[in-house]
Design a protein around this nucleic acid. Structure first.
Lengths: 157, 157
DNA sequence: CTGTGGACGTTGAGCCCTCAACTTTCTTGC
DNA sequence: GCAAGAAAGTTGAGGGCTCAACGTCCACAG
């Protein structure tokens, strides 16, 4: 019944797993050490910094950072403790909360970004050829579509 | 100073991040739900099942699963609680501990494997063309080498 | 034989994430 | 208007991971 992996697929899968773990752990560790920001929180700060007025509804922020609402809620609570984000309630929807990036938060992001970008270059782009970078983008896009369309999602909106 | 990412690199990086998060989280969730095994533990069971006598020194197991010693120690403790692994001390090196996969552990792995392999197929291989699978293997291998050779590792032994 | 440095493995604190409730508010149908 | 259901966020328990510190043991130099 089961369509087992052949030798080549096995190798591919293990290499993929290994690359994921090594690259991501390395970047996370560097970011944590150099700036005291876990990578998940860094991404939230980035998304906020790109939004108009540096502010976003919690649910919009969750979508943009591929994060669950629960994780985002915990994360923003901690970012708020650090003074990097402020939560305000939303005028037109009383259920809504809007996360605002503070100046301190923007400064923390600006301080962390150069080192992190260098890390991404060093561990992701530098080891690859330009062709491979293009291939990686296409593969990643295909995988994202695969998961979103795969298990139970009816179709994209 | 900083070599920022251009538009294309930015897209590549975000697609890569998103793909990893979605694929890995999805597989982890399926494995947890269908078999009650987190993916990190599944991998340990796999490595043990492949070893001669289904047993490995802790440090060898850590290397093979790209795991820190600390993580492995915690993980094996929990696997032992579940009755899936047994730790015995090693005759020739009194510091050493050898993790043995029990019959119950092998059975748990055998029960979980088909569903997990189907998940890997569905979320990784099916969305890709054969060419992309090959490319993914080469890219992953290059990334692994990049991290291992990159930051501070003097050279491989 | 003995001391020192390194390797093996474990432990505990702290942090982040997930899952499953739960509260509040909006929306829809009657 | 009002009740039922869906949506937005939050919370707390439970579990896994990291980091740093530790105890134990090997290996090698004197």
């Amino acid at each position: 019944m089961t369509r087992w992996l052949d030798e080549e697929e096995q190798q591919t899968w293990r290499a993929f797993l290994g690359a994921h773990r090594l690259v991501f752990d390395q970047l996370d560790r560097e970011l944590q050490r150099d700036s005291g920001i876990p990578h998940a929180y860094y991404e939230i700060l980035v998304r906020l910094s790109e939004a108009p007025d540096r502010a976003l509804r919690m649910s919009a922020l969750a979508d943009r950072s591929q994060s669950s609402r629960s994780r985002l809620s915990h994360a923003v609570a901690r970012l708020e403790d650090n003074g990097w984000v402020e939560r305000r309630s939303c005028a037109d929807d009383k259920r809504g909360q809007v996360a605002h990036l503070t100046d301190a938060g923007f400064a923390a992001l600006a301080a962390a970004a150069p080192g992190h970008v260098e890390g991404v270059r060093a561990h992701v782009f530098d080891p690859l050829t330009p062709d491979q970078v293009r291939q990686l983008r296409e593969i990643s896009t295909a995988l994202v579509k695969g998961v979103l369309a795969g298990p139970d999602a009816p179709d994209c909106d």
